[in-house]
């Protein structure tokens, strides 16, 4: 929601920039040393949870990241197994699930990213936080500023718990995750409404201009709400800022995204643990509720 509001403000502000244009240019960039990249998660679902290990590359390398194979990856005392077909992907057993309130430790060994003949040790920690009690969901078709932006908003009714909470919202349509990249996540902290009832607030959206997001009668729309840590919340903000465009009005100086991985020589990436709750609705008429702004 915060992101949507901000995007709209940005749209309003940039609307007055007369004829701003973009074009591709070539830029010479330097290289840097190789770092270990960790992308791992544990949730409250019972499934194969994963930790993906890759290497950093030159910025214009233009190919998939090189996997890091043969590592020893542990979560608490559970050893993850490297996938046979996808190198660098380490998975838990299929009956593994995370528990709310528990802390998870990731440790990685038998990796020699700097190729000096000695393997390095890496580690990370994350805790599974609880999530709000979600009551119900509404799908509302909305148009902004005479149709500049057309979307279906998912409006949530829920009770925010008294403690500090950080939410992450994803959306599925007929079992397909639509928000499959981190910049499509919607995150929200409850600083300004802590402990209040949330009476129908747009927390995710499906854009009409995107083919796979158009809502038709009979579709099942599922909202996934995650209770995340403050650190992961900040990681998402930093990452979406740094991986997205910047401009002199709204963007601070570029800076590396935080990581919760320690050890070795400057590892990057994130290990996150979070809780999941889901709420679905079946669409009869996608235009039953309409709002125009």
């Amino acid at each position: 929601m915060k992101k949507i509001t901000f995007r709209l403000i940005l749209a309003a502000a940039t609307a007055i920039l007369p004829g701003a244009c973009t074009e591709q240019v070539s830029v010479d960039l330097d290289s840097t040393y190789t770092r270990l990249v960790v992308d791992g998660q544990i949730t409250t679902d019972t499934t194969r949870h994963y930790v993906k290990l890759t290497q950093t590359m030159d910025y214009f390398s233009n190919q998939p990241a090189q996997p890091v194979t043969g590592a020893k990856v542990m979560i608490n005392d559970h050893r993850l197994r490297e996938n046979d077909t996808i190198p660098g992907l380490y998975q838990t057993d299929p009956d593994f699930f995370g528990v709310i309130g528990r802390t998870y430790h990731l440790s990685i060994d038998r990796v020699d990213i700097d190729a000096d003949g000695h393997s390095e040790h890496y580690q990370a920690t994350s805790r599974i936080n609880s999530i709000a009690r979600v009551d119900s969901l509404e799908l509302v078709y909305q148009e902004f500023a005479g149709g500049i932006m057309k979307m279906w908003g998912l409006e949530l009714f829920a009770q925010d718990p008294p403690e500090e909470n950080y939410y992450l919202f994803k959306v599925h349509k007929n079992d397909t995750l639509l928000t499959d990249t981190i910049d499509e996540y919607v995150i929200q902290e409850d600083m300004t409404f802590n402990g209040n009832y949330v009476p129908g607030v747009m927390v995710q959206s499906l854009e009409k201009s995107k083919k796979d997001e158009v809502v038709r009668p009979g579709d099942v729309i599922t909202l996934e709400a995650n209770g995340i840590t403050q650190e992961y919340y900040k990681y998402i903000i930093e990452l979406t800022n740094e991986a997205g465009p910047s401009n002199p009005l709204f963007s601070g100086p570029r800076a590396n995204v935080r990581t919760n991985i320690s050890g070795g020589n400057g590892p990057v990436g994130f290990f996150r643990a979070y809780s999941i709750t889901r709420l679905s609705l079946r669409v009869d008429d996608p235009y039953e509720k309409v709002k125009k702004w």
Binding site: L29, D30, S31, T32, R35, V37, D39, T54, Q55, T56, M57, D58, Y59, S61, P64, A65, D180, T181, I182, D183, L239, T240, E242, A243, R254, A255, N256, V257, V268, G269, F270
Partner: peptide, 14 residues
């Protein structure tokens, strides 16, 4: 001056 992937996005190393 470098890059890595995280949750579907390419992230720069500055």
């Amino acid at each position: 001056i470098g890059r890595y992937e995280s949750e579907g996005k390419i992230v720069p190393v500055y």
